[in-house]
Design a protein around this nucleic acid. Structure first.
Lengths: 339, 339
DNA sequence: CTGAAAGCGCTAACAG
DNA sequence: CTGTTAGCGCTTTCAG
């Protein structure tokens, strides 16, 4: 028997009155305290049900001094990459009984303010890659909000989870060299995010180890259009590059488009590699690097929860493994070709 | 000159004491009330700055009776589809000064409870497709929380935004018939979501109009693996279907994989279509239907804001157009082939 | 212009 | 076991 209560929320007072007890008893009864007589408990429950009472989250949070909510800050949500991270984060957090607030910073200049505002609404938050500067991170942490850093270098003594960029990029470089490519260009902006920086560094190091020239870098956005446009420009130059190492798969797919348009064949005329292993990469036969994105998000949520439970626990920093996925966009003579 | 305040949040009382005024004056000053002397204003500002004061969101919300936050409920975030919707929603909501809480229901049986909990934290929310039943939606709306429905049929007199499914599916059916395909199978579960139901209905209707047999339906999950497995099974049957209409692109890409594995050529031996036009579709040459996903999310956020501003404004229901994107997975004789 | 004080809805001592 | 009461931090009358 649910009473339609209209637009005025039912408060604990009304339940108390209806059950003929005090609000303290209602509170106890509804949150499963031992200190309530069975019969009282039943009366309170009945009253609450009849009124369809749901305790105000605000009142409760204010009294408890906690939000039971987590935040996550990421640069954007285009492409499957961040979506996966955020989803896994939400899934774990939700199962742990915490709501999740999201904030995409894009490159708004008021990103810092928005993050600070977010910090007012959560008990802890995950902060990804290229969103806000270290000062802001430290400021939030100093305010007592647990923070876990995602895909960015450690700041202070904060929990940090990253994926392996540089080492796998070295491996990728070797793979490229192995296929005889010489004029290598990196498409992506190392200054744009720690991830991209690591990938560029690894590529450079790998090429250096193989005594090849340092790669040229074309700092662009990480989307299909930018990859396509940049490649179009590059292919007009002489000599043409013979390998494009792209900072992510979207760029690589854009490069593919431009190559096709120019009548070039991949990998014969031009090798292309990506990063992330999004769904499209598989269908384009793109050699790329697979990242455990769901792990990133899930671990962040779990760690945050554990730190909230025990603020004194030791700091953790982890680098998740990534994996070179060899398909055909680099050359086809390689043994471990994957479909 | 920022004072490190440690872990105890600065309250309005401390600012008031430091500025030598009452908390009421601090409140007024900081929220830009006219009723504060210029000199007082300056003193309060200085004190707040020195203490790095940020008003407690909880205190404020409780007093104001509003959260300045919106929720969005969706079934999942796998695949680019929902991610795009959510991102656009966040972007608009954030610009309107509202935080956003997300909730993925997956198919948890406690989805209703979680949505109800979410309702306690927001001023309004968007509810997508196949998440919770109409009763729950009405219950939330009845509690005075503005709701906008996304990609699901209207419930009561709530604002609703959908994309055109049935009509475009009819068009798709005609396209398929036009290419001479006869044994058409629909991959997807019409009971799984209103969107899928609409697509199936349109396909059936289109085939009927062309006097073709009603399509068989294989109710599966909407991911690559399910599409691949189902197609593998279908291709083992005699006679083989000659056209697979998939409820989304992931399924279609999975079907592609299975066809390839079976040594069949698309579209010669088997036509395949998808829905959503994700990035991978383009590279697989998949004929599909493009949906304005960002519009969906952005419009939802905007409408919600407008309704919050003016609860009495007229209800709106809108169906956003979708567009058949013809590539090569159905046959190549069509005039309007797109790259 | 400014301060005092009454809530907002709930939790958690503290007394019985 | 149960009720009283003091906050949690802020906004907003209501009086000066």
């Amino acid at each position: 028997m649910k009473a339609l209560t209209g637009v005025k929320p039912v408060t604990i007072y009304e339940v108390a009155r209806r059950a003929g007890v005090s609000i303290a008893t209602v509170s106890r009864a509804l949150r499963g305290s031992e200190l309530v007589a069975a019969e009282t408990l039943a009366r309170v429950r009945a009253a609450a049900d009849e009124l369809d009472f749901r305790p105000s989250r605000l009142g409760r949070s204010l009294a408890e001094g906690r939000h039971a909510a987590n935040g996550i800050v990421f640069p954007d949500l285009v492409g499957p990459y961040y979506a996966e991270v955020v989803l896994a984060y939400e899934e774990v957090a939700s199962d742990l009984g915490r709501s999740v607030l999201i904030l995409a910073t894009h490159r708004r200049r008021d990103a810092v303010d928005r993050v600070l505002e977010l910090a007012q609404r959560v008990d802890g938050m995950a902060i990804m890659g290229n969103t806000v500067d270290d000062d802001t991170v430290e400021r939030i942490a100093a305010a007592g909000i647990p923070v876990v850093l995602l895909a960015r270098p450690p700041v202070g003594d904060l929990d940090t989870i990253r994926t392996r960029n540089e080492e796998t990029a070295v491996e990728l470089a070797q793979h490229i060299v192995h296929h005889g490519h010489r004029r290598v260009v990196f498409l992506g902006d190392p200054d744009a995010s720690p991830d991209v920086a690591g990938r560029y560094l690894g590529l450079s190091r790998g090429l250096r180890l193989a005594r090849r020239a340092r790669p040229a870098v074309v700092p662009i956005e990480l989307d299909v259009e930018a990859g396509e446009a940049a490649t179009r420009r590059l292919l007009a130059r002489q000599p043409r590059p013979d390998a494009l190492v792209c900072a992510n798969d979207e760029v690589a797919l854009g490069a593919h488009l431009a190559a096709e348009e120019a009548g070039l064949r991949v990998p014969t005329d031009l090798a292309i590699t990506g990063w992330d292993d999004i769904l499209g990469a598989r269908f384009a036969g793109l050699t790329t690097v697979r990242q455990p994105m769901r792990d990133l998000g899930a671990t962040a949520a779990r760690w945050l929860h554990e730190r909230l439970e025990d603020p004194a626990r030791p700091v953790r920093q982890q680098v998740l493994p990534t994996q070179l996925v060899v398909r055909r966009s680099c050359g086809i003579h390689h043994p471990e070709v994957e479909r």
